[in-house]
Each structure stands twice: as structure tokens, then as C-alpha cells.
């Protein structure tokens, strides 16, 4: 069964990119453009991994992570932060990895592979 990745980013260009990247590697990908949508999809699909942007309209990334952590069956889903903000590594301290935009494609795929396989 394909591993599922949930991509959360308000920038369509970035989320399309991540979706194509992960799909080409054989993962099943769903995309959310904000925290509310992200929580909804996380609850519905129980992804194996979540990539999370920090700066989004409305609620921001760390808020998503807090809400995720309060769900007993979601709190252990690994989260990779992918953000253009400086200091992003401090935004979600329990993230398994934190990458800066523009990210290194190979590095990201290596991290994802290490988590999921």
C-alpha cells in the first residue's frame, strides 16, 4: 500500500511542486492550503507524513502542530517543516526535520525516504 503524505502550504506553486515530487516517487499525496483544511484532511486520511509550511493566512504552522498533537491518533505523525521564514527551525521544535525554502530536492527525498521506508 502506498504511503500517504499530506502537504500543507498556502502557495499553490509550492504545494503542486511537492505533490509532483512525492507522487513521482510513488507516494499518495493530498494537499491543504491552510490549517483548518490540514486538520480536516489529517483526521480523514491519517497520513504517514506531513510537510508543513509556517507562514500561512489565518492560523499558522505551529498552531496546526499544536492541534495535531492534541489528537491521540494523530500526534505521532512525523512532521517536516518546509518554510521560507528565518528561524523556522524553532517554530515546531518537535518536527522531525526543518528545511528552508528553496529546499534541496534530494535532501528532502532522502529525509522522507528515511522516515517512510
Amino acid at each position: 500500500m502506498k504511503k500517504k503524505i499530506l502537504v500543507i502550504d498556502d502557495d499553490l506553486n509550492v504545494s503542486d511542486y511537492l505533490a509532483s515530487l512525492f507522487q513521482d516517487k510513488g507516494y499518495q499525496v493530498s494537499v491543504a492550503g491552510n490549517v483548518k483544511e490540514g486538520i480536516k484532511l489529517a483526521k480523514a486520511q491519517h497520513p504517514d507524513l506531513i510537510t508543513l509550511d509556517i507562514e500561512m493566512p489565518g492560523e499558522w504552522g505551529p498552531r496546526f502542530y499544536r492541534q495535531l498533537s492534541q489528537e491521540p491518533d494523530l500526534k505521532n505523525i512525523p512532521v517536516i517543516v518546509i518554510s521560507g521564514l528565518s528561524g523556522h527551525q524553532y517554530a515546531v521544535v518537535k518536527a522531525v526535520a526543518s528545511l528552508s525554502k528553496p529546499f534541496d530536492r534530494e535532501e528532502l527525498l532522502k529525509i522522507v525516504d528515511g522516515i517512510l521506508n
Partner: peptide
């Protein structure tokens, strides 16, 4: 603006990736 620029550069990377693929 650095945040916005980084987003644009990531999207540009995405386009290049799509082209390569």
C-alpha cells in the same frame, strides 16, 4: 520580502523539476 522571494524561488525550482520530469 525574503519570505516571498524564497517562495518564488521554490516555485521556480518546481517548474524546473516538472520540466526535467
Amino acid at each position: 520580502m525574503s519570505h516571498g522571494v524564497k517562495g518564488m524561488l521554490t516555485a521556480l525550482d518546481g517548474g524546473i523539476y516538472q520540466l526535467e520530469a
